[in-house]
């Protein structure tokens, strides 16, 4: 099964966290989030932590990839 992917790169607040929340709520397994800006990466990681989920961020070429478990 392919991991659900949500591309929030370049979107304004609060869209990245909103779309992440929707995806995590609907997904059965881990969700991959692509995000550009460091402060939005932190917001998404914080969202995951606040909702009892683990998250792993990897820096890619000009963006971050966060996998929420």
């Amino acid at each position: 099964m392919t991991m659900k992917e949500v591309d929030v790169r370049g979107l304004s607040c609060p869209e990245p966290v909103m779309l992440t929340a929707e995806a995590v709520k609907d997904a059965a397994g881990p969700v991959k989030i692509l995000v550009t800006e460091p402060h939005q990466k932190m917001n998404i990681e914080k969202y995951a932590k606040d909702h009892g989920k683990s998250s792993t961020a990897t820096e890619k070429d000009g963006y971050f990839e966060i996998v929420i478990g």
Binding site: G10, L11, E15
Partner: peptide
């Protein structure tokens, strides 16, 4: 409006 799908689109580097 945000819940109804409002967005100003993506910014790019």
């Amino acid at each position: 409006a945000l819940k109804k799908g409002f967005s100003l689109g993506r910014a790019h580097t």
